[in-house]
């Protein structure tokens, strides 16, 4: 029973990671690609780590704090790298995709 849960978690994790990589290839500009790179991968890594945590707990009887800390640190660092990359891209003048609808930031920057 518990093996099924572990397999589902591991498969979901790999599925999220693969979808994230595909998203990096398919999406049109820096900002949309960052969505795929930093987010889908976050949940993917978290699922894989959670699966191995449950495996170690039920199969070996080890409570592995390192794996839980790994999830925590991924969750802390992923948004910061995403924010910094997008900010750097915007400040150095990378354009949005031409089909983008609104850009409130460019108006506010010009006012200053």
């Amino acid at each position: 029973m518990i093996e099924i849960l572990i397999s589902i978690l591991l498969l979901l994790g790999t599925f999220f990671s693969i979808s994230g990589s595909l998203g990096i290839l398919r999406f049109p500009d820096v900002y949309t690609r960052l969505h795929a790179a930093t987010k889908a991968a976050t949940l993917g890594v978290a699922c894989v780590l959670l699966g191995s945590f449950i495996y170690l707990f039920f199969d070996q009887g080890i409570i592995s704090g390192k794996l839980l800390l790994g999830i925590l640190f991924v969750l802390i660092t992923a948004p910061i790298s995403g924010h910094m990359i997008s900010r750097a891209a915007y400040n150095s003048g990378v354009d949005l995709w031409e089909r983008s609808e609104k850009d409130h930031l460019s108006k506010d920057l010009k006012k200053n």
């Binding site: 900002y31 960052l34 987010k39 969750l75 948004p79 995403g82 924010h83 997008s86 915007y90």
Partner: peptide
């Protein structure tokens, strides 16, 4: 950070 972590939204500035 919470906004950046949820997919679909990303804090730019």
């Amino acid at each position: 950070n919470l906004i950046s972590l949820t997919p679909g939204t990303l804090t730019v500035a």
